[in-house]
């Protein structure tokens, strides 16, 4: 038997099913999201490995972390920008990952919408809160006495 006699599966015969893509939107959002996961992932490896190394491996490790430690780091714009980038990228990367998981497992439309609404609210609150904390932080708050960084004036 010759293989020539078998029609190609997706030939334009009358019987061949029309391949229907969802034409709901031409938006490239999903493609941008897919690319964002890979780009932000690579940057986050550098940011988070650096964060873990400086905070857990150097000096006294986690035991050295107190108010003065954070104040000392954020006195330097380098660490402010580092932490700001980490905050935004990690939250957007994580939110998009959880969005994908919700889309995969929550089958009812209402459930999916509700879960994603909660997710987006949580993400917005945490990003705004974290950003405000980095930029409105006062390393020498008035009235405070313990664990202050060494550069604060002695009360």
């Amino acid at each position: 038997m010759s293989t020539d006699s078998i029609a190609a599966p997706r030939s334009n015969s009358a019987q061949s099913p029309k391949y229907k893509r969802n034409k709901g939107s031409n938006s490239s959002f999903e493609m941008v999201a897919w690319l964002f996961m890979r780009l932000s992932g690579v940057i986050l490896i550098v940011l988070i490995f650096g964060h873990l190394f400086v905070n857990l491996m150097v000096g006294d490790g986690i035991h050295a972390i107190d108010f003065g430690f954070v104040a000392g780091k954020w006195a330097d714009p380098f660490w402010q920008i580092w932490d700001l980038a980490m905050l935004w990228l990690a939250l957007l990367h994580g939110t998009n990952g959880v969005r994908t998981i919700i889309n995969d497992y929550a089958e009812r439309d209402g459930t999916r919408m509700a879960l994603k609404t909660i997710l987006y609210i949580a993400t917005t609150v945490i990003i705004v809160l974290g950003t405000l904390v980095i930029f409105t932080f006062d390393p020498c708050p008035p009235g405070a006495v313990i664990d202050l960084p060494s550069f604060c004036p002695v009360p």
Binding site: D66, G68, V133, F137, A144, I146, D147
Partner: peptide, 11 residues
């Protein structure tokens, strides 16, 4: 974010 509340709370 507790660093914004007080050094005592964070520590």
């Amino acid at each position: 974010s507790l660093v914004r509340v007080s050094p005592e709370a964070y520590t």
